[in-house]
Design a protein around this nucleic acid. Structure first.
Lengths: 191, 191
DNA sequence: AAACTCATGTAAAGTGTTACATGATTAT
DNA sequence: ATAATCATGTAACACTTTACATGAGTTT
């Protein structure tokens, strides 16, 4: 039910239409919680039924603006503070890592380096996002924190993939079994 | 369709029953691709229909052991090398970060520190996993790489959460706007 | 005998993705 | 006029989660 709360969160900054929300979604939240147009309009309907938002204006072409209601704001706060986020971690990419043994080591290494390069590109892309997207809205203020997370995460992915590729190459060259201990530069043991 | 390939991958190490697979799942893959029992048995049926696996033995109480077929192995390889993994990134926890402005700063800080503590615990838990779980199977050999990823990731989450909490506390104390530049220890700009 | 583990399955509800469909208004 | 953008919706399918159901063998 997180899409629901994502919408409540966006509406907490002010009234907006489904169309508006979709744009904001793509520009910011999509990085941590992708959603499609179908899903969004459907959920808006359900939120109205539940009394958590209200249509407050009609615009040009069937446009409807919604606003957060009191119960909607209460629900948003409750979700923020009382519902513990579940660490959903589903990664297509990491799943493949478990099965790297079914392809030959050269291909496995290539796979890892390809993922590393993709992470580096992602890091590049994020580093071009300006720190303040506009006026000091809630979204941009705290979005900064999320952006920093994205930067750290993509850097991690890049470094890990390069490390893993080296591990595999070391194994195949046969001159040593890869260390159970990660290498010296490895930050994972910090703290 | 990744559950399908997760099962093919597990069966590439040798025959197993649904029950066996479930246990291995929980012990390893669940960290990157959780699945339930219902899902697993359902998918096994579909894999048999598709000819990617075969039942090769019947055991005590309705137990059926499955084995990977040739086409199954081919499909697994194809998926590994030709299907680009999509970076699915859905985080309940990061979604909340965008809306930290709707609760008061003290609560926001507490939230972040709580998440940081959870990450630290997770790091602890992972660091107790022995590097080689058993004989040098494919899973344990490459699972090592996945484990290292988990260690780095949990360390990152911990550090980020602490950093973010400090940022929020700095904002509320009002003596400075939080830097657009992350602090000196921040590793996200490395490389 | 009771409790536990092994072992498989079904059903319903919720959530997410893809594709299609439609029409109004604005800009070129 | 044509194209682009605004704006909403439906339908079908795929996937995930939760709960329930059942029975065979094993251990205490």
């Amino acid at each position: 039910m997180s899409l629901r709360h994502a919408l409540l969160g966006l509406l907490s900054e002010g009234p907006a239409s489904g169309y508006d929300l979709m744009k904001v979604f793509d520009a910011s939240l999509a990085n941590v919680w992708p959603a499609t147009q179908s899903q969004l309009y459907g959920e808006l309907g359900r939120l109205v039924e539940a009394g958590l938002i209200e249509a407050v204006a009609e615009g040009p072409r069937g446009r409807r603006e919604y606003e957060l209601t009191e119960p909607g704001m209460a629900e948003l706060r409750r979700w923020m503070l009382e519902v513990e986020p579940k660490p959903l971690r589903r990664s297509d990419m990491m799943l493949r890592v478990f099965f790297l043994g079914v392809v030959d080591p050269a291909e496995a290494g290539a796979y890892l380096r390809r993922q590393g390069a993709a992470a580096a590109e992602n890091h590049e892309r994020l580093s071009r996002v300006p720190p303040y997207l506009g006026s000091p809205h809630l979204l941009s203020a705290h979005g900064r924190l999320a952006l920093e997370w994205g930067l750290r995460f993509s850097a991690l992915q890049h470094e890990w993939a390069e490390w893993a590729a080296r591990e595999i190459e070391a194994t195949v060259s046969g001159d040593r079994a890869p260390d159970a201990e990660p290498d010296a530069k490895d930050p994972s043991q910090a703290r």
